[in-house]
Amino acid sequence: MVGRDPTMTAGGGPLAPGITPRLTRLPPTGTTPPVFYRQKHLLAIEGLAPDEIGHLLELADSYVLLNRSGKTQRDLLRGRTLINLFFEDSTRTRTSFELAGKRLGADVINMSVSTSSVNKGETLLDTAATLNAMQCDLLVVRHDQSGAPNLLARKVDAAVINAGDGTHEHPTQALLDALTIKRRKGRIGGLTIAICGDVLHSRVARSNIHLLTTMGCEVRVVGPPTLMPADIASFGVTVFHDMKTGLRDADIVMMLRLQKERMTRSLVPSAREYFRFWGLDAEKLAYAKDDALIMHPGPMNRGVEIDSAIADHPERSVIKEQVEMGVAVRMAVLDTLSRGDGRNDV
């Protein structure tokens, strides 16, 4: 990759004050840094301690610098097999994991399994048995059913990384969002973050809520009552149904994707009504802080949950930067889990 100035963000803007490039903290080749992550797998953000999240973010931060410097760490995962097992279509997450694995020198294999067959669960465990026989070291799983990675993790020897399961969790997305925030704002704790839109069906929202509340943020969820999960307030968030009050003085506005099938299930009447009340446009954004950042996990529905001009806002939209952080975060996760072999105790 092209060498870039590591003191600049992906968008070309300067790093936030307080963030200094720490080239000295690049993972040194051939030595093992102390491990602060105590799980064999990464199935969920829920249950991770602040120091485990902090460790992953710090390591990922160093990988951002490595990636920008154009160097690679191709010996780190040499001889290790990473399998991307995707039961649900995804281009960006799969590519991101693939790139992360390759930059660390792993043998990366992509498997896409159709879930259209009736016996999808049978396929899941049959596939697990096959992968086990292939001595896979790192297994990245995306599935349209909540809990499918947990089921797989009970059946395979590999370290399992959840790349999104149903409406449960998407832990690496939350980590990359946190890294984006931390690099731009210099901190995570103490910020006010509004997560807006279809929280009910969003695994991204769940993982982000767990991560951001664990790290001491004020988290708000904003959206129509039909797209709010039951008892979401018990997760330590505040619920708003109105964007203007929900966004007031927010540091971060995190938009969620609204899937078309939500309309067919009558949870919202139409795209234009949704955009009118919950789509992010300049008028609603004006209620957030002047320097509030705009985030979206992608892929975006322009004109449904977010106005195109806002999505492309040169200073405030960090949507492209999120993608860059995704690779670094996944490198950090692969690095950490590959060191553990389930014996990650401090």
């Binding site: 829920e46 909540s146 809990g147 399961d165 149903g166 409406t167 449960h168 969790e169 695994r203 769940r206 999960p229 039951a230 008892d231 979401i232 018990s234 997760f235």
Partner: peptide, 15 residues
């Protein structure tokens, strides 16, 4: 059962 537990697990709830 619809509630915090189902929400946490990302499972569709029954009230």
């Amino acid at each position: 059962t619809e509630g915090a537990q189902a929400t946490r697990l990302g499972l569709p709830g029954i009230p």
